[in-house]
Every structure is written in C-alpha cells, then in structure tokens.
Amino acid sequence: MSRLSRVRQAAWLILAIVPVVGAADPFTKQDLSDWQSAYDQVVTAGRDAFTDPKLGNNGVVCAQCHPNAANTHPETYPKFQKQLGRVAVMWEMINWCIRNPLEGKDLQPDDPRMIALQAYITQERRGVALAPGKH
C-alpha cells in the first residue's frame, strides 16, 4: 500500500467516526447562550451608564433627553456631524454629549462604559435598517 492510500484510508476512518453535523458547526448551544449573556450584561451596563448621574459632572444623565435612547439614531453613523465639523462615528458624538450637556470628560473609545453605552443605544434601536449618513 502506498503512503497516499494509507492517508486516504485514515481519512475515511476519521469521517466514519465523527458525526458530520458536528464537524461542520463549531458553535454549540452553550457557546451561543454564553455570548448572548455576555452581550446582555454589557447592554445592562450600558443602560446603567446611560442613567448614571456620575457619567458627567453636573448630575444630568443621557436618558433625560433620550428616553429609551430615542433620537440617538445609531443606524445613521458614520455621518457628517456639524458639532464636530466632519464625518464622525457614534462614540465621538457620545463624547460630545458627555463634554457638553453633561459637562464631563471624554471617555476613551475602548473604555468599557463607552462600549456598553453603544451596546445599549444600538439594542434599543434594533430592527431599524442601516441608513449611514442620514439626517
């Protein structure tokens, strides 16, 4: 038996043992539920930051002007933002709001609160079609 045919034979053996469905799909139900739960926790943290008087410096919270994160329209970013003088992505506009109505200090783009805020805002807007650049 040549080397090549031995390899072929071994491959057949492996295929016969491992169920085909499992091999094609590396995500288990457990994976999906873990990841969903990780996301849900971040959304909850986002809602907490969205209603946290300590996010800025004057006690004003995001939800005061944006109940259920309405009128944040995450589906429209990136877009030209007059307050920033250029096309911007959403976290930049969130920082604008933290600096101005909340009179606070910018968050870093990878600050866990900044990521959570975007998760919450986008979750409240789920199902709406993407409309980048829209005003």
Partner: peptide, 12 residues
C-alpha cells in the same frame, strides 16, 4: 428645559 423625541422614534 430640554426637548423630547416624539414617541415614534422609539422603534420597539
């Protein structure tokens, strides 16, 4: 004080 969005802006 401040403006509120119209309710239809909450898509859910």
């Amino acid at each position: 004080a401040w403006a509120w969005p119209y309710p239809e802006t909450y898509a859910q």
